[in-house]
Design a protein around this nucleic acid. Structure first.
Lengths: 136, 136
DNA sequence: GTAGCTGCAAACTCTTTGCAACTCT
DNA sequence: AGAGTTGCAAAGAGTTTGCAGCTAC
């Protein structure tokens, strides 16, 4: 029983076949697009429908078990909320590198406070290229 | 002659009626959705088409005169690139507050560097609520 | 048994595009 | 005059939804 499954049950959701399949996919990889979740889910259970994938991901987002991210793409990706981190997107490969930074967390709070706001949520993405040799 | 118009001419674009209208709208307000630009443009010239708004905004994005933002919405907003800033979105009103922070800029560079990356671009948005009285 | 879940297909929203007519230079 | 631009309508991509049948509890 994975943490994700347990949390769904706690939330009163039925543990159906399609749901187990999708949760398994989410446990195995992160930062997937809907289409990617769908493809991986189909590999496990070929009868699953993309409507179910959309519905399940929306539910999980509402339960805060997953976060819908938009990056600057025209479709969404979903992240499991098992830890708090940010993303650095490698512009050459499209790969997503995760990072955490305490200093950054504090700075955000400070900025919001200075503006008279209580911070509820935030997004930060860095886009970069791997530094090769000793350039510049 | 606005800066935006001048830059478009420099880029070799024809200064047509619809384009002038859209540039005027962009000069008057920022962070607009396509639909909002369209509405404001129609108020000036009711014959303008939404296809032209989309095409013009895409061109401006390619010329880097404007930046397409996605926030966590299902549609895009466009920002004129006249200065560099970030956004704090007021969750109660949906209003966008701009801010700049030198410390933050440096920290981003540092994080990317530590991960072995050269920073090309980044996004940061804070979501918060205005602090009323002296709560908590 | 039944409330909740599913697959299917149709509908929706936002965005892009082909084309013939038009317009800035 | 001619390349670039426009409006229109149709097409595309991603996402949501109504419904009848199915399934976990």
């Amino acid at each position: 029983m994975t943490e994700l499954e347990q949390r769904c049950i706690d939330a009163g959701l039925k543990m159906t076949g399609p749901r187990k399949t999708i949760l398994k996919v989410l446990n195995n990889s992160n930062h997937l697009s809907v289409e990617e979740v769908y493809e991986k889910a189909k590999a496990i259970d070929s009868t699953i429908s993309i409507a179910t994938v959309y519905r399940t991901l929306s539910m999980l987002d509402e339960l805060d078990l997953v976060t819908r991210q938009e990056f600057n793409e025209t479709f969404s990706r979903y992240d499991t909320n098992l830890d708090h981190h940010h993303h650095l997107i490698d512009l050459d490969t499209g790969k997503v590198i995760e990072f955490q930074n305490e200093e950054l967390e504090k700075l955000k709070e400070k900025i919001a406070e200075e503006l008279g706001f209580e911070l509820v949520d935030h997004t930060l993405e860095l886009y970069g290229r791997r530094i090769k040799k000793k350039k510049k």
